[in-house]
Design a protein around this nucleic acid. Structure first.
Lengths: 120, 120
DNA sequence: CGGCTCGTACGATAGCCCTCGTAGTACGGC
DNA sequence: GCCGTACTACGAGGGCTATCGTACGAGCCG
């Protein structure tokens, strides 16, 4: 009902401000295998936005919603409605300002482990 | 009672092998403020080994033991007995081989946040 | 309008985790 | 040998979390 939300069915979702993003929350969000995989997939095509249903995760839809919310509330991803779909994208810009090099190091570490163990 | 442990009171503690260290476990270990602080303190004097009681943590001794064990079992620190004291050191060598640049990025991120928020 | 798909909300359950207190073990010094 | 120090083990409690099922709202298409 907010005047800003009147435009083209764009419901807003609560995101933490950049300065409210805490490192512990980011690390906790990424310490779950399902969420780490989501972030890796999002980073693969960094510019593209994927809907929640685009991912093939070994959990139900309810749990998927939960994981995406954890990622959003920790400041790792940005979610915007596009019609009935919810598009997800990394908050790479904000994370790079707050913690330069961290995201790349994390993604590289995840990729390295996936190649080593075969979990990706 | 093992023959190897007979030498000079060196009780052994179970550490994960380098190839058994999992990124998710490392991130989970570091997602706790107390443990993140321990790691930051250990990294400050990277060569030195500190006993558990060296740290001034806002938790009891039992909880401190618990946190050090989580850090050890996740592969972040190495613990060795030295008489009655237990010396702690970062496993920087192993972590750098597994995840190059990750530890430095994490420490830099933690330092940056501490400077920003004043939690350090 | 009717139905379809996408995602949410709510409740429930089970497991994990942080915290602590108390009791106990290992080592060093007197 | 005895005591103090450093740390551990065990058990308990309280809270968070991951997971699910079911029921529901929001937008699109015919």
């Amino acid at each position: 009902m907010t005047p800003a939300a009147t435009a083209a069915g764009t419901r807003d979702l609560p995101h933490p401000a950049r300065d409210d993003i805490r490192l512990e929350d980011v690390l906790h969000a990424l310490s779950d295998p399902v969420r780490l995989r989501i972030v890796r997939d999002l980073a693969a095509d960094s510019d593209a936005l994927f809907s929640c249903s685009h991912f093939d995760l070994p959990v139900t839809k309810s749990t998927t919603t939960h994981h995406f919310r954890v990622l959003r509330e920790s400041g790792v991803i940005r979610q915007t409605y596009r019609g009935t779909a919810k598009m997800n994208g990394l908050r790479r810009d904000d994370l790079d300002v707050l913690f330069p090099g961290l995201l790349d190091a994390l993604l590289a570490a995840a990729a390295r482990q996936a190649a080593r163990v075969g979990t990706g």
